[in-house]
Design a protein around this nucleic acid. Structure first.
Lengths: 147, 147
DNA sequence: CTACTACCTTCGTGTTACACGAAGTCAATA
DNA sequence: TATTGACTTCGTGTAACACGAAGGTAGTAG
Protein backbone atom coordinates (compact mmCIF):
# COMPACT_ATOMS: atom_id res chain seq x y z
CA UNK A 1 0.00 0.00 0.00
CA UNK A 2 1.38 3.35 -1.08
CA UNK A 3 0.64 6.96 -0.16
CA UNK A 4 0.32 9.80 -2.62
CA UNK A 5 3.86 10.84 -1.89
CA UNK A 6 5.28 7.41 -2.57
CA UNK A 7 3.30 6.98 -5.73
CA UNK A 8 4.38 10.39 -6.97
CA UNK A 9 8.00 9.42 -6.52
CA UNK A 10 7.48 6.03 -8.02
CA UNK A 11 5.86 7.28 -11.20
CA UNK A 12 7.62 10.62 -11.41
CA UNK A 13 4.46 12.67 -11.09
CA UNK A 14 3.89 15.51 -8.64
CA UNK A 15 1.60 14.91 -5.70
CA UNK A 16 -0.67 17.50 -7.20
CA UNK A 17 -0.93 15.51 -10.38
CA UNK A 18 -1.55 12.24 -8.58
CA UNK A 19 -4.42 13.79 -6.64
CA UNK A 20 -5.65 15.48 -9.79
CA UNK A 21 -5.81 12.19 -11.66
CA UNK A 22 -7.48 10.27 -8.87
CA UNK A 23 -10.00 13.05 -8.35
CA UNK A 24 -10.80 12.94 -12.05
CA UNK A 25 -11.58 9.26 -11.74
CA UNK A 26 -8.67 8.00 -13.80
CA UNK A 27 -7.74 5.49 -11.11
CA UNK A 28 -10.98 3.78 -10.12
CA UNK A 29 -9.32 1.27 -7.85
CA UNK A 30 -7.83 3.82 -5.49
CA UNK A 31 -9.03 3.42 -1.91
CA UNK A 32 -9.16 5.57 1.19
CA UNK A 33 -8.07 4.62 4.66
CA UNK A 34 -10.09 5.51 7.74
CA UNK A 35 -8.49 8.94 7.74
CA UNK A 36 -9.55 9.54 4.20
CA UNK A 37 -6.02 9.26 2.87
CA UNK A 38 -5.64 7.92 -0.62
CA UNK A 39 -4.23 4.44 -0.59
CA UNK A 40 -2.75 2.89 -3.72
CA UNK A 41 -2.42 -0.84 -3.95
CA UNK A 42 -0.49 -2.51 -6.71
CA UNK A 43 -3.48 -2.41 -8.99
CA UNK A 44 -3.98 1.32 -8.57
CA UNK A 45 -0.38 1.89 -9.43
CA UNK A 46 -0.78 -0.28 -12.47
CA UNK A 47 -3.76 1.78 -13.53
CA UNK A 48 -1.76 4.92 -13.11
CA UNK A 49 0.99 3.51 -15.26
CA UNK A 50 -1.60 2.79 -17.92
CA UNK A 51 -2.92 6.32 -17.62
CA UNK A 52 0.59 7.63 -18.09
CA UNK A 53 0.95 5.67 -21.29
CA UNK A 54 -2.31 7.04 -22.61
CA UNK A 55 -1.31 10.57 -21.65
CA UNK A 56 2.05 10.04 -23.25
CA UNK A 57 0.54 9.56 -26.65
CA UNK A 58 -1.50 12.71 -26.43
CA UNK A 59 -4.82 11.63 -24.93
CA UNK A 60 -6.49 14.32 -22.88
CA UNK A 61 -7.51 13.68 -19.29
CA UNK A 62 -11.10 13.85 -20.45
CA UNK A 63 -10.59 11.19 -23.09
CA UNK A 64 -8.73 8.95 -20.71
CA UNK A 65 -11.63 9.31 -18.32
CA UNK A 66 -14.02 8.16 -21.04
CA UNK A 67 -11.79 5.22 -21.76
CA UNK A 68 -11.59 4.27 -18.09
CA UNK A 69 -15.37 4.46 -17.89
CA UNK A 70 -15.60 2.13 -20.87
CA UNK A 71 -13.37 -0.31 -19.03
CA UNK A 72 -15.65 -0.19 -16.03
CA UNK A 73 -18.72 -0.72 -18.16
CA UNK A 74 -17.54 -4.18 -19.05
CA UNK A 75 -17.18 -6.55 -21.93
CA UNK A 76 -19.71 -4.81 -24.18
CA UNK A 77 -17.25 -2.00 -24.79
CA UNK A 78 -14.27 -4.02 -25.88
CA UNK A 79 -14.65 -3.27 -29.57
CA UNK A 80 -14.82 0.41 -28.82
CA UNK A 81 -11.79 0.26 -26.58
CA UNK A 82 -9.92 -1.69 -29.19
CA UNK A 83 -10.46 1.07 -31.69
CA UNK A 84 -9.31 3.70 -29.24
CA UNK A 85 -6.12 1.79 -28.57
CA UNK A 86 -5.53 1.29 -32.27
CA UNK A 87 -5.81 4.99 -32.82
CA UNK A 88 -3.42 5.74 -29.99
CA UNK A 89 -1.05 3.15 -31.33
CA UNK A 90 -0.85 4.98 -34.63
CA UNK A 91 -0.24 8.23 -32.80
CA UNK A 92 2.45 6.67 -30.66
CA UNK A 93 4.17 5.26 -33.71
CA UNK A 94 4.15 8.66 -35.36
CA UNK A 95 5.63 10.10 -32.18
CA UNK A 96 8.31 7.49 -32.26
CA UNK A 97 9.37 8.60 -35.71
CA UNK A 98 9.36 12.24 -34.71
CA UNK A 99 11.35 11.63 -31.57
CA UNK A 100 13.80 9.50 -33.48
CA UNK A 101 14.33 12.37 -35.89
CA UNK A 102 14.72 14.73 -32.96
CA UNK A 103 17.39 12.59 -31.35
CA UNK A 104 19.20 12.46 -34.62
CA UNK A 105 19.02 16.21 -35.00
CA UNK A 106 20.41 16.74 -31.51
CA UNK A 107 23.21 14.27 -32.10
CA UNK A 108 24.28 15.79 -35.38
CA UNK A 109 23.96 19.28 -34.00
CA UNK A 110 26.04 18.42 -30.95
CA UNK A 111 28.67 16.88 -33.20
CA UNK A 112 28.69 19.95 -35.33
CA UNK A 113 29.27 22.22 -32.35
CA UNK A 114 31.93 19.92 -31.05
CA UNK A 115 33.81 20.15 -34.30
CA UNK A 116 33.72 23.92 -34.12
CA UNK A 117 34.86 23.93 -30.51
CA UNK A 118 37.73 21.63 -31.36
CA UNK A 119 38.66 23.84 -34.24
CA UNK A 120 38.18 21.15 -36.83
CA UNK A 121 35.93 23.42 -38.81
CA UNK A 122 35.41 27.17 -38.61
CA UNK A 123 32.33 28.56 -36.95
CA UNK A 124 29.36 29.55 -39.04
CA UNK A 125 26.99 31.24 -36.73
CA UNK A 126 25.51 33.73 -39.10
CA UNK A 127 22.33 33.02 -41.01
CA UNK A 128 22.96 30.53 -43.72
CA UNK A 129 24.78 28.38 -41.22
CA UNK A 130 24.52 24.75 -40.31
CA UNK A 131 20.91 25.11 -39.27
CA UNK A 132 20.17 25.87 -42.85
CA UNK A 133 22.42 23.27 -44.34
CA UNK A 134 21.17 20.58 -42.03
CA UNK A 135 17.57 21.52 -42.47
CA UNK A 136 18.02 21.77 -46.20
CA UNK A 137 19.10 18.19 -46.25
CA UNK A 138 16.34 17.20 -43.91
CA UNK A 139 13.82 19.16 -45.84
CA UNK A 140 13.58 16.75 -48.68
CA UNK A 141 12.58 14.00 -46.31
CA UNK A 142 10.55 16.37 -44.19
CA UNK A 143 8.67 17.76 -47.12
CA UNK A 144 7.94 14.30 -48.34
CA UNK A 145 6.23 13.75 -45.01
CA UNK A 146 4.41 17.01 -44.82
CA UNK A 147 3.31 17.65 -48.36
CA UNK B 1 9.03 32.18 -50.91
CA UNK B 2 6.17 30.95 -48.77
CA UNK B 3 3.26 32.61 -47.03
CA UNK B 4 2.14 31.86 -43.50
CA UNK B 5 -0.56 29.58 -44.80
CA UNK B 6 1.81 27.56 -46.91
CA UNK B 7 4.34 27.25 -44.13
CA UNK B 8 1.66 26.15 -41.71
CA UNK B 9 0.65 23.37 -44.08
CA UNK B 10 4.22 22.44 -44.78
CA UNK B 11 5.23 22.08 -41.15
CA UNK B 12 1.87 21.02 -39.76
CA UNK B 13 1.46 24.04 -37.52
CA UNK B 14 -1.54 26.33 -37.34
CA UNK B 15 -1.26 29.78 -38.86
CA UNK B 16 -1.72 31.11 -35.38
CA UNK B 17 1.30 29.20 -34.19
CA UNK B 18 3.46 30.27 -37.11
CA UNK B 19 2.67 33.91 -36.43
CA UNK B 20 3.15 33.33 -32.73
CA UNK B 21 6.62 31.91 -33.25
CA UNK B 22 7.73 34.57 -35.68
CA UNK B 23 6.39 37.30 -33.40
CA UNK B 24 8.35 35.78 -30.53
CA UNK B 25 11.50 36.04 -32.58
CA UNK B 26 12.09 32.34 -33.04
CA UNK B 27 12.58 32.78 -36.77
CA UNK B 28 14.96 35.69 -37.15
CA UNK B 29 15.32 35.32 -40.88
CA UNK B 30 11.67 35.88 -41.68
CA UNK B 31 11.06 38.84 -43.96
CA UNK B 32 8.12 41.04 -44.84
CA UNK B 33 6.99 42.03 -48.29
CA UNK B 34 5.90 45.55 -49.15
CA UNK B 35 2.43 44.81 -47.79
CA UNK B 36 3.87 43.68 -44.49
CA UNK B 37 3.10 40.04 -45.14
CA UNK B 38 5.44 37.51 -43.60
CA UNK B 39 7.60 35.89 -46.23
CA UNK B 40 9.45 32.67 -45.53
CA UNK B 41 12.39 31.72 -47.65
CA UNK B 42 14.04 28.34 -47.46
CA UNK B 43 16.18 29.44 -44.58
CA UNK B 44 13.25 30.62 -42.50
CA UNK B 45 11.57 27.31 -43.01
CA UNK B 46 14.72 25.55 -41.95
CA UNK B 47 14.81 27.65 -38.82
CA UNK B 48 11.24 26.74 -38.10
CA UNK B 49 12.05 23.09 -38.50
CA UNK B 50 14.84 23.51 -36.00
CA UNK B 51 12.47 25.26 -33.64
CA UNK B 52 10.08 22.36 -33.96
CA UNK B 53 12.80 19.94 -32.98
CA UNK B 54 13.67 21.99 -29.92
CA UNK B 55 10.03 22.26 -28.96
CA UNK B 56 9.62 18.55 -29.49
CA UNK B 57 12.05 17.74 -26.73
CA UNK B 58 10.34 19.97 -24.25
CA UNK B 59 12.02 23.35 -24.60
CA UNK B 60 9.78 26.27 -23.82
CA UNK B 61 9.27 29.06 -26.31
CA UNK B 62 11.17 31.31 -23.96
CA UNK B 63 14.17 29.00 -23.82
CA UNK B 64 14.15 28.54 -27.57
CA UNK B 65 14.17 32.30 -27.89
CA UNK B 66 17.24 32.48 -25.67
CA UNK B 67 18.92 29.85 -27.78
CA UNK B 68 18.09 31.67 -30.99
CA UNK B 69 19.50 34.85 -29.49
CA UNK B 70 22.68 32.98 -28.65
CA UNK B 71 22.91 31.89 -32.26
CA UNK B 72 22.59 35.46 -33.42
CA UNK B 73 25.22 36.63 -30.98
CA UNK B 74 27.85 34.69 -32.82
CA UNK B 75 30.77 32.41 -32.30
CA UNK B 76 31.39 33.38 -28.70
CA UNK B 77 28.31 31.46 -27.61
CA UNK B 78 29.09 28.16 -29.22
CA UNK B 79 30.15 26.43 -26.01
CA UNK B 80 26.94 27.53 -24.34
CA UNK B 81 24.86 26.36 -27.25
CA UNK B 82 26.69 23.08 -27.29
CA UNK B 83 25.70 22.46 -23.67
CA UNK B 84 22.09 23.33 -24.36
CA UNK B 85 21.96 20.90 -27.22
CA UNK B 86 23.63 18.19 -25.15
CA UNK B 87 20.99 18.63 -22.48
CA UNK B 88 18.20 18.46 -25.02
CA UNK B 89 19.80 15.40 -26.53
CA UNK B 90 19.59 13.60 -23.22
CA UNK B 91 15.97 14.63 -22.88
CA UNK B 92 15.18 13.48 -26.39
CA UNK B 93 16.82 10.14 -25.75
CA UNK B 94 14.74 9.67 -22.61
CA UNK B 95 11.67 10.51 -24.63
CA UNK B 96 12.65 7.95 -27.17
CA UNK B 97 12.68 5.26 -24.52
CA UNK B 98 9.37 6.36 -23.11
CA UNK B 99 7.70 6.50 -26.49
CA UNK B 100 9.14 3.12 -27.37
CA UNK B 101 7.57 1.70 -24.25
CA UNK B 102 4.32 3.41 -25.10
CA UNK B 103 4.22 1.90 -28.56
CA UNK B 104 4.87 -1.49 -27.08
CA UNK B 105 2.08 -1.02 -24.56
CA UNK B 106 -0.37 -0.05 -27.28
CA UNK B 107 0.63 -2.97 -29.46
CA UNK B 108 0.27 -5.50 -26.70
CA UNK B 109 -2.95 -3.96 -25.52
CA UNK B 110 -4.41 -3.99 -29.02
CA UNK B 111 -3.41 -7.62 -29.40
CA UNK B 112 -5.04 -8.43 -26.13
CA UNK B 113 -8.31 -6.85 -27.16
CA UNK B 114 -8.15 -8.54 -30.51
CA UNK B 115 -7.88 -11.91 -28.86
CA UNK B 116 -10.92 -11.19 -26.75
CA UNK B 117 -12.88 -10.01 -29.77
CA UNK B 118 -11.94 -13.11 -31.70
CA UNK B 119 -13.00 -15.24 -28.76
CA UNK B 120 -9.57 -16.72 -28.29
CA UNK B 121 -9.62 -15.74 -24.64
CA UNK B 122 -12.49 -14.69 -22.41
CA UNK B 123 -12.93 -11.08 -21.51
CA UNK B 124 -11.56 -9.70 -18.29
CA UNK B 125 -12.81 -6.21 -17.97
CA UNK B 126 -13.16 -5.97 -14.23
CA UNK B 127 -10.42 -4.64 -12.03
CA UNK B 128 -7.62 -7.11 -11.77
CA UNK B 129 -7.71 -7.42 -15.53
CA UNK B 130 -5.00 -7.25 -18.13
CA UNK B 131 -4.12 -3.70 -17.21
CA UNK B 132 -2.95 -5.06 -13.94
CA UNK B 133 -1.21 -8.08 -15.30
CA UNK B 134 0.56 -6.09 -17.96
CA UNK B 135 1.52 -3.34 -15.60
CA UNK B 136 2.66 -5.81 -13.03
CA UNK B 137 5.12 -7.16 -15.51
CA UNK B 138 6.14 -3.69 -16.59
CA UNK B 139 6.46 -2.54 -13.05
CA UNK B 140 9.67 -4.35 -12.36
CA UNK B 141 11.34 -2.51 -15.19
CA UNK B 142 9.46 0.67 -14.42
CA UNK B 143 10.38 0.60 -10.80
CA UNK B 144 13.97 -0.02 -11.69
CA UNK B 145 13.81 3.22 -13.62
CA UNK B 146 11.96 5.25 -11.08
CA UNK B 147 13.38 4.11 -7.78
C1' DC C 1 0.33 17.32 26.78
C1' DT C 2 2.14 19.50 23.19
C1' DA C 3 4.58 20.03 19.12
C1' DC C 4 5.44 18.44 14.74
C1' DT C 5 4.70 16.00 10.65
C1' DA C 6 2.02 14.23 7.10
C1' DC C 7 -1.87 13.66 5.17
C1' DC C 8 -6.34 15.69 3.71
C1' DT C 9 -9.78 19.45 1.93
C1' DT C 10 -11.42 23.68 -0.78
C1' DC C 11 -10.38 27.96 -2.90
C1' DG C 12 -8.16 30.70 -5.83
C1' DT C 13 -4.53 32.54 -8.70
C1' DG C 14 -0.78 31.92 -12.16
C1' DT C 15 1.42 29.70 -16.24
C1' DT C 16 2.34 27.98 -20.92
C1' DA C 17 1.24 27.58 -25.46
C1' DC C 18 -1.55 28.02 -27.82
C1' DA C 19 -6.97 28.24 -30.17
C1' DC C 20 -10.27 31.15 -31.67
C1' DG C 21 -13.13 35.03 -32.79
C1' DA C 22 -13.95 40.06 -33.55
C1' DA C 23 -12.99 44.15 -35.78
C1' DG C 24 -10.78 46.82 -38.67
C1' DT C 25 -7.09 47.73 -42.37
C1' DC C 26 -4.78 47.05 -46.65
C1' DA C 27 -3.81 45.21 -51.44
C1' DA C 28 -4.40 42.41 -55.36
C1' DT C 29 -7.55 39.94 -58.17
C1' DA C 30 -12.10 38.62 -60.74
C1' DT D 1 -17.39 46.26 -56.88
C1' DA D 2 -16.88 42.35 -54.26
C1' DT D 3 -14.24 38.90 -52.69
C1' DT D 4 -10.09 37.02 -51.06
C1' DG D 5 -6.21 36.83 -48.15
C1' DA D 6 -3.03 38.76 -45.71
C1' DC D 7 -2.28 41.71 -41.73
C1' DT D 8 -3.08 44.04 -36.94
C1' DT D 9 -4.65 44.42 -31.90
C1' DC D 10 -7.59 42.93 -28.37
C1' DG D 11 -9.60 39.84 -25.70
C1' DT D 12 -11.39 35.53 -24.06
C1' DG D 13 -10.97 30.53 -23.41
C1' DT D 14 -8.58 26.14 -22.65
C1' DA D 15 -5.74 22.18 -20.74
C1' DA D 16 -3.06 20.48 -17.40
C1' DC D 17 -1.23 21.44 -14.27
C1' DA D 18 1.87 24.37 -10.32
C1' DC D 19 1.57 26.51 -6.24
C1' DG D 20 0.19 28.65 -1.99
C1' DA D 21 -3.17 29.61 1.72
C1' DA D 22 -6.14 28.26 5.16
C1' DG D 23 -8.01 25.07 7.96
C1' DG D 24 -8.93 20.08 9.56
C1' DT D 25 -7.46 15.47 11.38
C1' DA D 26 -4.39 11.70 12.84
C1' DG D 27 -0.26 9.67 14.55
C1' DT D 28 4.25 10.03 16.56
C1' DA D 29 8.07 11.98 19.43
C1' DG D 30 9.74 14.52 23.27
Amino acid sequence: MYTVKEVSKLLDLTEHTVRFYTDKGLVPSVQRDKNNNRLFDQESINWLIGVRFLKQCGMSVEDIKSYVDLCLEGNSTIQERYEIILKQKVIAQAQLEEVTRTVKYMEEKANHYLKIIKGVIPDDTNPGNWESKYANNQLKKAQADFL
